[in-house]
Amino acid sequence: MTSKPLKAVGEEVWKTKIDKVNAELVALTYGSLVAQLCRDFENNYDRVNEQLDKMGYNIGLRLIEDFLARSGIGRCSSFKDTAEVISKVGFKMFLNVVPRVSNWSADGKTFSLYIDDNPLADFVELPPQSENLWYSNIYCGVLRGALEMTQMQVHAEFVSDVLQGHAATEIKVQLLQILKDEIPAAEE
């Protein structure tokens, strides 16, 4: 584990190790995909959400390697620690935003991420009657995939989204179980 505070780690990685691209281009590309999916699924937003989650999951599986390599972060000692790393280092180094971690459940297995200034949501105005659409659902998949690669099975879902006119953009992350490492039995 690094001895530096996580916020500083995240900022340093962002400043020194990350190639940057104009956020608008990324928002445009992602947005075109979401709009296309809405057309393909004829505005069946449940299916769109599902597809975005799937896409995010595939990305999460690949992203973790990059994350570990660039951040130098080692194994997290607790789920609380994991949440802080996700927000201050993970989101920071990929999206240059630091969601607020809050709303912990009593058993320490569920927390919420509150995202201000969602870079993917730039310019977006949702079509009428799209209350079921979680536009940035890719994040839930990414969290699921990336954490699975670090032996945590989680469920992530949107609770609210400013794009839908809600007061905040909130993702709830719940730890379902720790996955045991597949360690072959030692030879006696």
Binding site: E24, A27, L28, G31, S32, V34, A35, C38, D122, F123, V124, E125, L126, P127
Partner: peptide, 19 residues
Amino acid sequence: SGVSCNPFYVPPDKIHSAK
């Protein structure tokens, strides 16, 4: 230009943007 970057807006649709 922000409107034209809304993925749900396809030029040359009529503009119905609250923003």
